[in-house]
Amino acid sequence: MTAGRYANKRKMSRLERKNTLIAYSFLAPNFLGFLIFTLVPVVFSVVLSLLDWGGGQNAEWVGLGNFSFIFDEFSFQDSNLGIALKNTVFYTAMTVPLTIVCALGLAMILNRGVKGANIFRAALFFPYVASLVAICVCWNFLLMKDGIVNQILGAFGIVMDKSWTSSRDLAIWAIIIVSTWKNAGYYMVMYLAGLQGVPAELYEAATMDGANAWQKFRKVTLPMLTPTTFFCSIMMVISCFKIYDVVAIMTQGGPGRSTKMLVTYIFELSFGGEGIATSAQYGVASAVAMVLLVIVLLVTFIQFRGEKKWVNYM
């Protein structure tokens, strides 16, 4: 103990000081970037949520006034925050499981060693790297009133009389489908890596015990993939709560408020929306951002608490 304290107090030699400085200088670009572009804005936004600020010289301290404004007459049917919250939670609750199922399914098929697996892998990964605007515009066409999707549904006797994005009930599903389609390829790659890490002995042992394919999947594959699933679900929940881009391109939050999400609402409060001038209510917008932050923190915390119960690290 005393030796350690002595070591700490000992003056650094010239060489040591030089080395330390060099080390810091290597860290500096990344750390400075983080400081200026991430940490400062985050702290600023926390402070902003307690101010009435329109972007100019006058900022007024309003305490929790912004929060009482957004929670005023809170309801999931009528208040903007309530609707945005409801839509975001619904979107997340649907997109995350759907993406996981698709990603896992695709990974298992490709892991079987299908002919041309490389081509399929590249094709399935493509949506993730393709331009989002192009993807969304294409999907808008596919989901049009007389688009391919509605025509296929029509062949099965399901008659659709309007575009998906023009319907209050279906617009959010259009967003969910596009998000799932876009992200499934990315998470599929994660699952592929996970699948390749499952030891073959386990399957051998299961076969010896007379397990059928379903039992092997349930008792070997799924438990062995829980770390991957855990990682994917955390990343996906966080990104789903922050959904903005797909909505902005495909529906602009409409029709009405049926696809208004938390981030769309934040954007609208600070920068305005379609046909709406800048509202510049940065304080109120930051308050909504704080609500979003708390929700994401809470959900992630719960996920980590549950980790011990269902995640197996072998």
């Binding site: 309007k162 023009s166 319907s167 209050r168 939050g253 409409g254 029709p255 009405g256 408020r257 929306g273 379609e274 046909g275 709406i276």
Partner: peptide, 12 residues
């Protein structure tokens, strides 16, 4: 504007 989109899409 939001209600306008609902009327025009004939949702209401």
């Amino acid at each position: 504007n939001e209600e306008h989109t609902l009327i025009m899409t004939r949702e209401i």
